[in-house]
Simulated assay, not measured.
Amino acid sequence: MEKGNLEILSGGYYKPLMSAILDRDKIGQVEKMSSYIKKKFGCKETKELWLAERV
């Protein structure tokens, strides 16, 4: 990463418990967050994801 740049990560939009939802819903969660990031920050695409699993 170049100096002065910020890396924005995607993830689940509503902080879902990914292990408890259907695969299609997992994909939808990530797509919704990625779409929000693109609109909010003007990114062309998101390349990375932060997957926080709660126990």
Rank of each mutant, 00 (worst) to 15 (best):
residue 30 V to E: 03
residue 41 F to D: 05
residue 10 S to G: 09
residue 34 S to T: 12
residue 9 L to M: 13
residue 13 Y to M: 11
residue 20 A to K: 04
residue 43 C to Y: 12
residue 13 Y to I: 10
residue 47 K to Y: 03
residue 9 L to H: 10
residue 52 A to I: 13
residue 22 L to K: 07
residue 32 K to L: 10
residue 13 Y to S: 15
residue 3 K to I: 09
residue 21 I to H: 03
residue 44 K to R: 02
residue 36 Y to W: 09
residue 35 S to D: 07
residue 45 E to M: 05
residue 8 I to L: 05
residue 25 D to F: 01
residue 55 V to C: 07
residue 13 Y to L: 15
residue 19 S to F: 01
residue 6 L to N: 08
residue 18 M to K: 13
residue 54 R to C: 14
residue 12 G to V: 00
residue 27 I to G: 02
residue 20 A to D: 04
residue 15 K to S: 03
residue 12 G to S: 04
residue 26 K to F: 03
residue 22 L to T: 05
residue 40 K to Q: 07
residue 23 D to R: 12
residue 49 L to K: 08
residue 37 I to T: 04
residue 19 S to H: 09
residue 13 Y to D: 05
residue 1 M to C: 07
residue 31 E to Y: 14
residue 49 L to W: 09
residue 54 R to I: 09
residue 38 K to G: 01
residue 42 G to T: 06
residue 2 E to I: 14
residue 13 Y to Q: 05
residue 51 L to R: 00
residue 23 D to P: 08
residue 5 N to L: 11
residue 18 M to S: 15
residue 51 L to M: 07
residue 13 Y to H: 06
residue 46 T to G: 00
residue 19 S to E: 06
residue 19 S to L: 13
residue 33 M to V: 09
residue 10 S to Y: 00
residue 53 E to F: 11
residue 31 E to H: 10
residue 32 K to R: 14
residue 39 K to T: 13
residue 35 S to C: 10
residue 19 S to A: 12
residue 27 I to M: 00
residue 10 S to R: 00
residue 43 C to D: 06
residue 43 C to F: 12
residue 36 Y to P: 08
residue 23 D to V: 03
residue 40 K to P: 04
residue 39 K to N: 08
residue 28 G to K: 00
residue 17 L to T: 10
residue 23 D to L: 08
residue 13 Y to P: 10
residue 30 V to H: 03
residue 13 Y to N: 07
residue 38 K to Q: 09
residue 12 G to I: 00
residue 3 K to G: 14
residue 25 D to E: 07
residue 39 K to C: 03
residue 43 C to I: 15
residue 11 G to W: 00
residue 36 Y to N: 13
residue 49 L to M: 11
residue 6 L to T: 11
residue 9 L to N: 11
residue 49 L to N: 11
residue 9 L to C: 03
residue 36 Y to M: 13
